[in-house]
Amino acid sequence: MALNTPQITPTKKITVRAIGEELPRGDYQRCPQCDMLFSLPEINSHQSAYCPRCQAKIRDGRDWSLTRLAAMAFTMLLLMPFAWGEPLLHIWLLGIRIDANVMQGIWQMTKQGDAITGSMVFFCVIGAPLILVTSIAYLWFGNRLGMNLRPVLLMLERLKEWVMLDIYLVGIGVASIKVQDYAHIQAGVGLFSFVALVILTTVTLSHLNVEELWERFYPQRPATRRDEKLRVCLGCHFTGYPDQRGRCPRCHIPLRLRRRHSLQKCWAALLASIVLLLPANLLPISIIYLNGGRQEDTILSGIMSLASSNIAVAGIVFIASILVPFTKVIVMFTLLLSIHFKCQQGLRTRILLLRMVTWIGRWSMLDLFVISLTMSLINRDQILAFTMGPAAFYFGAAVILTILAVEWLDSRLLWDAHESGNARFDD
């Protein structure tokens, strides 16, 4: 018995066209964080690309023209004298008006014999932002004059995390709450300039795509075929072959399989920071003279006294001054041990922890910024005066060393310790 099946006739004509040209192939790229070699397709503007294995951002879609970056830099340069030299806060102490600005706080630190601690604050609040705007201006002028731009481009990517104007702005709020127990506070004209400078700096850093600047100024022929001998440069993120001198053909720094002496430098910085954190938390970090009496505060006791007036601000200072430094030390110690013992479990967790400490590390400088600003506000000789204690130097040095330890660690070593050939990683 035959089955009668109805015929289905399409209502619209289906047209099949042959592909007349070869589909576009992607360029081969190595991930600078996990060293995976993959094919990167062509990316349009405002599109980002991520590593298929570790999800690290390979290409950032946010990109401004150099002219727009230069305009932002010149605007920031105009704001800087007002943000640093004009009063941020006014207080009335014992019937006398006192003005506080950024430069005055750094000068008070240096004047009291601790120039190293003052230079830490100076670099993060004044030096690094000033280098940022002058570097962008150098790129703008240098591109037109045919100057060598490689050193500036190499420095810009590392400079971003040292620009800490946003953290200093939080420190202004913390210092205001600490001082309000002794005097009446009012915002100064410099505060508005400083807030504007923070906003412009944040926007500029978020749109400063150094890798795209490398592509514009020093374009290189990408690798179009897969080759395990391809290496990625950690300076400019170019994937290719080393030249005859073993250097990256684009930025001219040595092109090595792994960062040289990464573990040794990381261990040295980490152990030194552990040693410095002990006096930083045991010795007094601030000293207040009130009517001839002397009151010393460690980091913890200062947080407890701050909690009596504002528990939320005390929580912020606790996280930045105690929780973050010790968390960074514990995480980095764990990561280094996992590399030495070739741990194969929990790779995803370790990668996330490394990215976390990379982002939060700079916030530990908050305590030094609060001390710097408070020193310029309260300084009335023996009637009422505020000065920093010996722990300030140890704390600042420990924070900087932990930042350097994270920067010096080559994250690809975590993958080397893991089993080879993993296309995915999980716990």
Rank of each mutant, 00 (worst) to 15 (best):
S338K: 12
A391F: 03
F74H: 03
E157A: 14
C236L: 00
E296R: 10
T387L: 12
C266S: 13
C34I: 00
V195T: 12
L401A: 12
A391K: 00
S262Q: 05
S338G: 12
W214Y: 11
I43T: 06
G127E: 05
L306F: 02
S308L: 12
M80D: 06
C124Q: 03
T134Q: 09
C233F: 00
K160W: 04
A280I: 05
L200Q: 15
M72T: 08
P87K: 10
Q186M: 14
A307V: 12
R294E: 02
I172M: 12
T239Q: 09
M120S: 03
R226S: 14
Q108P: 13
Q55W: 06
A397I: 04
H90G: 05
G85T: 06
L130I: 12
I400R: 00
C251Y: 01
L276N: 12
I253F: 03
D410H: 00
K160E: 10
T224E: 14
M147C: 09
H252W: 04
I311Y: 13
C233Y: 01
R259Y: 11
F425A: 15
N379E: 02
T202V: 11
E407N: 12
S45W: 03
V133Y: 04
I303L: 15
I285F: 00
T202I: 13
S301G: 07
R247V: 13
F141C: 06
L40P: 06
L300S: 03
T402S: 02
K328N: 00
L154G: 02
I322Y: 05
L156K: 06
I339K: 09
S262P: 07
P242C: 14
S305N: 11
Q264A: 05
Y168E: 11
V179P: 14
D381Y: 09
M109Q: 06
A196F: 14
G361D: 01
W140Y: 12
T75H: 08
S301I: 04
R294I: 05
K13P: 04
F393I: 08
A314V: 13
R412I: 00
I167Y: 03
A100C: 07
G188Q: 12
R258K: 08
D166V: 15
L336Y: 07
H252F: 06
Y289W: 13
M76L: 09
V313I: 13
F238T: 09
R62C: 04
A312K: 15
R221G: 14
F122R: 06
V121S: 05
M365H: 04
I371K: 00
L384W: 02
L132C: 05
V195Q: 05
G293A: 12
A391L: 01
Q33N: 10
D114R: 06
R362F: 02
T75M: 08
L336C: 11
V179G: 08
T239L: 11
Y138S: 06
A320T: 04
A423G: 14
L169H: 02
L149E: 04
Q29H: 09
D166G: 15
S48Q: 12
G190V: 03
T327L: 13
P254F: 10
A320V: 15
L257D: 12
I126R: 15
L323N: 03
L208R: 14
G421P: 05
A49P: 04
H252N: 05
I299E: 00
D181N: 02
A268L: 04
T5D: 12
W64D: 03
D426S: 06
M72D: 04
F74Y: 03
H237K: 13
S206L: 15
T402F: 09
R348Y: 12
A71G: 05
C54F: 00
H261S: 09
V16L: 05
V275F: 08
I14T: 11
I19P: 09
R259F: 10
A269Y: 04
W84F: 11
H261C: 11
M375N: 01
D297K: 04
L208Y: 11
L354W: 05
I378W: 01
